[in-house]
Amino acid sequence: MFGGRFVPVVRTLVPHLAGATGVPFRRVAPYSVVAAVVWAGAEVGAGYAAAVSVRRAVALGVPLVAGCAAVAGVVLWWLRARRRQGTAPGRGAGDAGWAVSGPGRRGGPSGPGGGRAGRTVMGMCP
């Protein structure tokens, strides 16, 4: 019963199994109390031992995350500025405003079927 308190799935089942098999509460309670004290001590000890590496990770991680967020912000700003100008990345000035069409559809400035008749995006349709 004591060891079962340290195994994740078994920890949930031990009290139920003890009750189902008729083990009296007075016999189960001391094991549960001792296991809880040992478990708490192990968790506190692990946290204390990891404190130095956590401080180092925070000291290095916060500037790294801030730098990545700044780069992402600049990239998003640049993409929006290009989109407002009508030249999104991957599109030439002559293709600005043309909708992407699938097989059998024609795309144009006003959507499928609109714009200049006979022209398709990426030459997918005749």
Rank of each mutant, 00 (worst) to 15 (best):
R116N: 03
L13A: 13
R82P: 06
R5V: 01
G61K: 10
A81L: 00
M1T: 07
V75M: 10
V28M: 10
G94F: 01
P109D: 07
G61S: 07
G107D: 00
Y31S: 08
G115D: 02
G102W: 04
V7I: 14
S110H: 10
G115C: 07
W98V: 03
W78A: 00
L60V: 15
V75K: 08
W39A: 14
L76A: 14
G73T: 11
L13E: 07
L17A: 09
D95I: 03
V62P: 04
G73Y: 00
V23C: 01
Y48M: 11
A69W: 03
P30K: 07
P30V: 05
P63R: 09
G92D: 14
A117K: 02
V10E: 01
A99V: 08
V54N: 14
L64G: 15
R56E: 15
G107T: 03
A117Y: 03
P109E: 13
L60K: 15
P89V: 08
R83Y: 13
V33T: 14
V14F: 00
L79K: 03
G4E: 01
F6L: 12
P112S: 04
M124C: 06
G118R: 01
V44H: 03
S110A: 14
V62F: 13
V14K: 06
G115W: 12
A81I: 02
P24L: 07
R55K: 15
P109S: 11
M124K: 05
T87I: 13
D95W: 12
R105N: 09
R26L: 08
G123H: 04
W77P: 05
V23T: 06
A36N: 10
P109R: 13
T12S: 06
A49N: 11
P15I: 02
A42P: 01
P24R: 14
W98H: 00
R56K: 15
R105E: 05
A35L: 07
P103A: 15
A40E: 00
G4T: 00
V9K: 01
Y31M: 09
R91Y: 12
G47T: 01
V58A: 15
R119Y: 06
M1P: 00
V33A: 15
G19M: 05
S32C: 12
F25K: 12
P109I: 05
G94W: 07
P63L: 09
G90M: 07
F25M: 08
V33Q: 05
V74Q: 01
G90E: 02
G61P: 06
R91L: 12
A88G: 07
P112D: 11
G118I: 01
R56D: 15
G114A: 04
P30T: 06
L13Y: 05
T120K: 04
G19Q: 11
G19S: 04
M1N: 00
F2Q: 03
P89M: 04
G47M: 08
G104F: 07
A42T: 14
R83L: 04
P8H: 10
G92H: 02
G19C: 02
